[in-house]
Amino acid sequence: MTSHAISPDGTQPAPALTLGARDYKTLALSALGGTLEFYDFVIYVFFATVLGALFFPPDMPDWLRQLQTFGIFAAGYLARPVGGIVIAHFGDLLGRKRMFTLSIFLMAAPTLVIGLLPTYASIGIAAPLLLLAMRVLQGAAIGGEMPGAWVFIGEHVPAQRYGFGIGALTSGITGGILLGSLVAVAINRHYSPAEVSGFAWRIPFVLGGVFGLVSVYLRRFLHETPVFKELADRKTVARELPLRTVLREHRAASVYVALLTWVLSAAIVVVVLYTPTYLQKVHHIQPALALEANALATLTLTIGCVLAGWASDRIGTRAVMLIGWGGLFATAYLFYTGLPGTPATLFWHYGLVGLFVGTIATVPIAGVRAFPAPVRFTGL
């Protein structure tokens, strides 16, 4: 049996080995599932302007419409902790794989529903309320998916490739943003603005629902983590409510990981998800150009996650954090103070910022290690 990266007691790593064929299969299926699920979560933001016009009263001021639209997007983030705690609770009690599969199903269904929702013109105020409800369900699902995915891989891969495994998985998750960006570019290139508002905006959501169901099927081929199997064999699976154990015995680790997660979320939401709208609304950059630049930044972000994980195995997580977050601060300053610039500088600077956003891979690398196995899913 391949030694895993984190031992059941959560303290000492097992002997370092190289990745085997089964490890690569697990990593590939987990990353692909993460790509498809995170696509479902973020595709909303790429069509925020269109959704705002369709799901709110036409006489509402534009600034208020955008505020309401992004407020509904933010509701998904507010629901994440609740969904994460519930799904993680059962992940620590019943197994990682079951919840890993359930979370992606809970994401696919609301995404498909959003693609089929009637607009404000058809059902009035019920339209934004239904949209809000679907975003809350999506947020609950992603709250269980991301920590579940990181724990799943962290307990599977060998110690010597722990950082690379988590970084590669994180690149798969951020690849969902890239996929969403590319789909948005394709929709805006292929259809006129009137067609996008009329029917084409529904296409990426319906595709997302189908993607999600494919992911549910793919995860049937994954195996439970060696760590959880050993816990179950030893009868050391969490006996009380895992959240109670975390709050009583691991408060410092919880605060530490929460602070790291704030940095991760800020980097993704501000630099990757919100900036395309910011470029269009504030600097009047054409939607297609803004989305293409965003696609490049998301591609470099995906590469950056793998590089951060690889470097973490070689020079340490702390060193990668210092270099990566420092580089992000410098490149973000260069990018945002240089706007609108030229198309060439837009692509070059945005791509460079995206590469350093890849430092977010160090957050789960540090976070998974912060908690012992019986409550690891809940703690993270």
Rank of each mutant, 00 (worst) to 15 (best):
F55C: 03
A308F: 02
E249V: 01
D92C: 11
A141C: 13
V185R: 04
Y278A: 14
L264Q: 15
S197N: 12
A74I: 00
L78Y: 06
H223T: 09
W262R: 04
Y44W: 05
A186K: 04
R220S: 03
I166P: 06
F70C: 04
V206L: 15
G327Q: 06
F100V: 01
P276F: 10
P287E: 04
G143D: 09
V82C: 02
Q68M: 13
L131T: 06
G358C: 07
S7D: 15
Y162S: 13
G76E: 04
A361H: 09
Y278R: 05
Y24A: 08
K25V: 13
F377C: 07
G358V: 09
R239T: 13
P128I: 06
T337P: 00
T261Y: 12
K281H: 02
Q280N: 13
Y77G: 00
H190Y: 08
F73W: 04
R80S: 02
A332Y: 12
L241A: 14
T342E: 00
P58T: 09
V157R: 11
L137A: 13
G165F: 12
A297R: 06
R244H: 05
L32E: 10
A258Y: 09
S215E: 03
S122K: 13
T378D: 07
S181F: 02
G20Y: 01
G209P: 00
V357M: 11
L380M: 14
G309S: 10
G209L: 04
P8D: 10
W63I: 03
G341H: 09
H156M: 07
